[in-house]
């Protein structure tokens, strides 16, 4: 077992993990942050996407021990004053999701992408989100939510 300390959603967390445990499993099982979902555990679906030190990563393809000392943000960390963050609000307004299983991955991926590319157009957003799989929506409502969030941010 390895002892680790990291910051998750602004809070210092510690844990004692087997080296083989993925960051996704650590967040879900050890920290009870079940908002991060696992949909494939081999890096393809994007449901487990979280932000580690300002970059989006797949938490199923990173070991928990590797996150020691890092700043990790999960979907639970996006709420503003207990309410929805601007992207979440725009996604609610756009009826972005159905079953919600893919949602944490899309929200985190789009959060990271919009932070780096606030001026992105639809085509760029589609490409940026093409590593995340949603089986329910056909994507349009998700793209619309991201576009709406980008537009609101630009308008201040």
């Amino acid at each position: 077992m390895v002892d680790i300390t990291l910051t998750v959603n602004g809070v210092t967390r510690t844990g004692s993990v087997e080296a083989r445990k993925t960051l996704a499993d650590f967040l879900r099982d050890d920290l009870d942050l079940t908002g991060t979902h696992v949909g494939c555990e081999h890096g393809v679906c994007g449901a487990c996407t979280v932000i580690v030190d300002d970059r989006e990563v797949r938490s199923c393809l990173m070991l928990a021990v590797q996150a020691a000392g890092s700043q990790v943000t999960t979907i639970e960390g996006l709420a503003h004053d207990g309410g929805l963050g601007p992207l979440q609000q725009a996604m609610w307004d756009s009826h972005s999701f159905q079953c919600g299983f893919c949602t944490p991955g899309f929200v985190m991926q789009a959060t990271a992408f919009l932070a780096a590319h606030p001026e992105a157009d639809e085509q760029q957003i589609r490409e940026a989100l093409s590593g995340n799989i949603c089986r329910c929506t056909g994507y349009q409502s998700i793209i619309d939510g991201v576009l709406l969030a980008a537009q609101r941010t630009r308008q201040g």
Binding site: H37, T74, E76, L78, L84, M91, W92, H95, F97
Partner: peptide, 23 residues
Amino acid sequence: ASIKRSEDPRILTGTGRYVDDIK
């Protein structure tokens, strides 16, 4: 009317409860 979904606040904040979330 396209009323906003009452499911969404929990889904969008990671507080939904799927079977694998049960402990």
